[in-house]
Design a protein around this nucleic acid. Structure first.
Lengths: 129, 129
DNA sequence: TAACTGTATTATTTATGTTAGTACAATTAG
DNA sequence: CTAATTGTACTAACATAAATAATACAGTTA
């Protein structure tokens, strides 16, 4: 289900957080869908269960999943307009990316075109619903 | 010249890299402008010179500055169209941000508006040249 | 009851970040 | 030339974080 790069300098649990978050955001993992059990995923990836739990704990803390003892861990349904702080952070990140693109010599019009192209692709892929 | 958050979980040298990179990208630090000497900046920030050097080494490796033994470290002038790899990485980051905004319920039109607003602001600030 | 789930705890090992101190070669100001 | 600056390299020590290992416990489910 997941692929890891053990050679990477990024911590394994952090890679896991990013990967799973990405799957949730892209609707590959659907709302309320159950995630692999801590021990199961640890066995599949041949890493320690504690590392998985650390990733799950972080994902729960960031609001992407919820866990129920005895039942399992599940994708937390997103509620629009409930995460202004995260949205503000994203706008800030967007600003940095734009600055660097301008710095690299990309014309503003080309940046807009790039955004629209990406939006079309992502919106097109939303036909999975 | 720089401000650090020693309480942060992010490594000091990494914070330095990000801060300086941002100053370069936003043209606060001009091309070929000299950066503070390793020992000087270390003294100002009351941290170890080795930590500064690690940050400078990383910045040089990423192509944002160049260092000359005996002279100093300087802002490397950007040459447009010379960094396709970095541009590809930025487009990838942009894609992730868009995905998360859509996931949070932001309408596509609103994302475009947000981008244009940010572009206007950054382009306006470019009058420093 | 038995087999699953998440969670918690302690200990150990390994990797990374940071400081400290020293040294050397290139450059520049006097 | 000399002295003071620059970047760079190196070793050692310490602190923190990441990852593994081995149990253990409570809630859930078949």
């Amino acid at each position: 289900m997941f692929e890891l790069d053990l050679r990477s300098r990024a911590p394994v649990y952090e890679q896991l957080v990013e990967k799973i978050k990405e799957l949730i955001i892209n609707n590959v993992l659907k709302p309320d869908q159950q995630l692999p059990a801590v021990r199961v995923l640890a066995s599949e990836l041949t890493i320690n269960p504690n590392t998985i739990q650390k990733a799950y704990r972080e994902l729960e803390h960031r609001g992407y999943i919820y866990s129920v003892p005895g039942k399992g861990s599940f994708v937390k349904p997103a509620v629009p307009g409930t995460n202004d702080a995260r949205l503000q952070a994203l706008e800030n990140e967007l600003g940095k990316i734009i600055s660097e693109m301008l710095y690299l010599g990309v014309p503003p019009q080309e940046i807009i075109t790039m955004l629209k192209k990406l939006l079309a692709k992502k919106e097109g892929g939303k036909l999975d619903d």
